[in-house]
């Protein structure tokens, strides 16, 4: 039975990795959430500065609005992804449970040998294996949805990165406010880069299991 157990772990190591990796992704998204909140805050700061700068920073305002929106969308997406990652993890656990049960039923059938009811157990094993297959498909589907959401965050962050680079140029016309606006823009740029890195990392983790 010890050998049998090792066999399970090898056969289903992929699924095991899946329910672990989706939990890992959910954990990393906590950092993304924090950084996205920093972006929103920085965008609000920039907006306040631009307000004070008045006419001198007119071209800056729509930029801060846009960045703020990207930050907020990222936060909403992270919340959704967290739920989705949990779903993936749940389905992967269910798949593993079905696969394990089916293996144990087959083992019981083999212990029965020539007994007429061995077939009953084999049929049961097949039924459960079919459940496992269904779960497996669901896991893949949910994982794809997860990847799409991650990609949307990445796009948001790319956009806010590009825009904040541009805003540094715009800040030149803000005269005495130039420096503080540039500091904010730089903060946003760095934060966006950081989120993009984490997202790519998460995507790699999920892809490894697809």
């Amino acid at each position: 039975m010890v050998h049998e157990y090792v066999y399970f772990m090898n056969t289903y190591s992929q699924e095991q990795a899946f329910f672990v990796s989706s939990a890992v992704v959910a954990g990393r998204l906590l950092t993304v959430m924090q950084v996205a909140k920093e972006i929103s805050l920085a965008a609000k700061n920039a907006k306040a500065i631009a307000e004070r700068a008045g006419e001198k920073a007119n071209s800056f305002k729509p930029i801060t609005d846009f960045i703020d929106e990207m930050g907020r969308e990222t936060i909403t997406l992270v919340e959704k992804i967290n739920e989705q990652a949990l779903e993936v993890s749940r389905s992967a656990v269910e798949e593993l449970r079905c696969s394990e049960a089916s293996e144990r039923f087959l083992h019981a059938a083999s212990l029965l040998g020539e007994h007429r009811r061995a077939e009953v157990l084999q049929d049961k094993a097949k039924e459960i294996e079919a459940d496992a297959e269904r779960q497996k498909k669901e896991v893949r589907q949910q994982a794809r949805a997860l990847l799409e959401m991650l990609e949307r965050i990445w796009s948001c962050m790319r956009a806010s990165g590009v825009i904040s680079t541009r805003s540094r140029v715009e800040a030149v016309s803000a005269e005495e406010y130039q420096e503080s606006l540039q500091v904010v823009a730089e903060t946003i740029e760095k934060a966006s880069e950081r989120i993009k890195d984490i997202i790519r990392d998460c995507e790699r983790t999920i892809h490894q299991n697809m």
Binding site: A109, L112, R117, A118
Partner: peptide, 17 residues
């Protein structure tokens, strides 16, 4: 859990599940 397979086999010898 560890003795489930053996138990299921034993039980099935006497009764359909």
């Amino acid at each position: 859990i560890e003795i489930f397979s053996s138990m299921l086999a034993c039980v099935t010898r006497h009764s359909d599940p």
